[in-house]
Amino acid sequence: MTGGDTGPHLCLSQEDDLQHLTTWISRNVLSGSHMMTAPDLETLAVLVPGHKRIIEVGCYCGALTRLFALFGERVWSVDWLIGDEAAGHYNTDEVEAIYRENNAEALASGQLELLKMSSTEGAAELAKRGVTADLIWIDAGHEYPDVHADISNYLPLLAPGGIMCGHDAGPFEGVTQAVDELLPGALYYPQTVWLWHEGLPALGPECDVQFEMHIVPMRQAMITVGTPTTLGGR
């Protein structure tokens, strides 16, 4: 092992068969995501490749869906594509068109399916079909009742040993409160990702996260400023 310099000099050259996932993500996900930061995407870049059946709860324009579809053999996105009071309401047809364009190939092959319905209805539909997933990503409504319902509804769909994780822990009090209540011991990964699986150890009270709660401009700002981005063809 070495503790040498890392990072900047890593690159995918022509003669190199190693694949630089961060580069792929910045071209194919980050450039079209109004919501994810590079550190959070790096967290997912490490977490996602080992998983084959993935449920994404809240997908918006489908930028992050591309990462899930890159590695998952079977991926389900659930979103009613109308936004909400916190996020702001957006043009459903426009967002759906962008989602479909961003993920055209995976949708056409049947590898990816969009369930255009509320997250509660989506959970019921997936349960009815007997779907389980080894990774479930929660990023729909951010108010406490919404996150509480999503975790409760999707937890039964998690395969044994699977991971439930989500976005916007920290400044979004509703997310933090629901995760703490339903998934005690979940790990917080900077900047805003939370991770949980059955049997996580207690790390000690000094490791309890103390978030600085402050009002952040909700997604509204991210959604209403600028036009959602299509990634297709990149």
């Binding site: 068969d17 694949q19 961060t22």
Partner: peptide, 24 residues
């Protein structure tokens, strides 16, 4: 070949990784 390379000085591989050039 095709193993993933991470900024934080790790590589990772599993059976059936996608070709990122094709998927770009």
């Amino acid at each position: 070949p095709g193993a993933l390379l991470y900024e934080t000085n790790y590589w990772a591989w599993r059976e059936g990784l996608p070709d990122l050039e094709v998927q770009a």
